[in-house]
């Protein structure tokens, strides 16, 4: 494992912890898109089907369990927790899941490396992860005041994706490899979706003002 991959995984872990911290201690999910969280739960459920069939490493298995557990518990908190669910911006979080899920499933059925159930599900998870942040970005744009934790959550997620690109570049030059167009293109598209957010995030940080995305 190289330093970019480890930093990427740790940033991903940090993003989940920031979100759980906000939900668990402040008991608020204001500004958090349930749609995005449900899509991530689906991403992990379809990608980690190999958790029961292939053993890669203890690290790999533990991280998979953390991402599965955290994504489903975040969804549970927002939907069912007595206090947390009241802070959910239901009227603002209107992005329709199926507009992302159906095209991703169709694309996975036609563009994949192997036509097996596990492989198509894995490819679907890559496509879906690439666009799963969209409901969250739309919600941020509609929210006039983005709180620090929500801003940091999205920033850490974007940083994780960017670090994975460096990891692929590093692996390309240092390891025997196959060409993984699907993984790479989906990863680059996903990172590009954060470009606009990053711009405003750094502007607000530089000028020391509250983060606000233009409508």
């Amino acid at each position: 494992m190289n330093i970019f991959r480890l930093a990427g995984d740790m940033t991903h872990l940090a993003s989940v912890l920031v979100l759980l911290l906000k939900i668990h201690t402040i008991k608020s999910c204001a500004g958090v898109s349930l749609k995005t969280q449900e899509l991530y739960a689906l991403v992990f459920a379809t990608r980690y089907l190999d958790i029961v069939t292939d053993f890669i490493s203890v690290y790999n298995t533990v991280m998979k369990l953390i991402f599965l557990g955290s994504s489903f518990s975040i969804v549970w908190y927002i939907r069912h927790h007595r206090v947390v669910r009241r802070s959910y911006d239901k009227d603002q979080d209107t992005f329709r899941h199926y507009l992302l899920m159906i095209p991703c499933m169709l694309l996975a059925l036609f563009v994949h490396e192997k036509f097996t159930f596990k492989e198509v599900m894995w490819t679907f998870s890559l496509y879906l992860e690439a666009v799963a942040i969209l409901p969250q970005l739309v919600l941020l744009q509609r929210t006039r005041n983005i709180d620090n934790l929500t801003g940091q959550y999205v920033f850490l997620l974007g940083a994780y994706r960017g670090l994975y690109i460096f990891n692929w570049i590093y692996r390309y030059f240092t390891e025997p490899h196959f060409v993984h167009w699907i993984t790479w293109i989906a990863g680059v598209v996903q990172t590009l979706l954060y470009a606009d957010f990053f711009y405003y995030y750094f502007e607000s940080w530089k000028n020391n003002v509250r983060l606000q995305l233009p409508a």
Binding site: R5, Y164, F178, T183
Partner: peptide, 10 residues
């Protein structure tokens, strides 16, 4: 079975 390196990623 071919080696499939990105599968060890998360």
């Amino acid at each position: 079975e071919e080696e499939y390196d990105v599968k060890d990623e998360l």
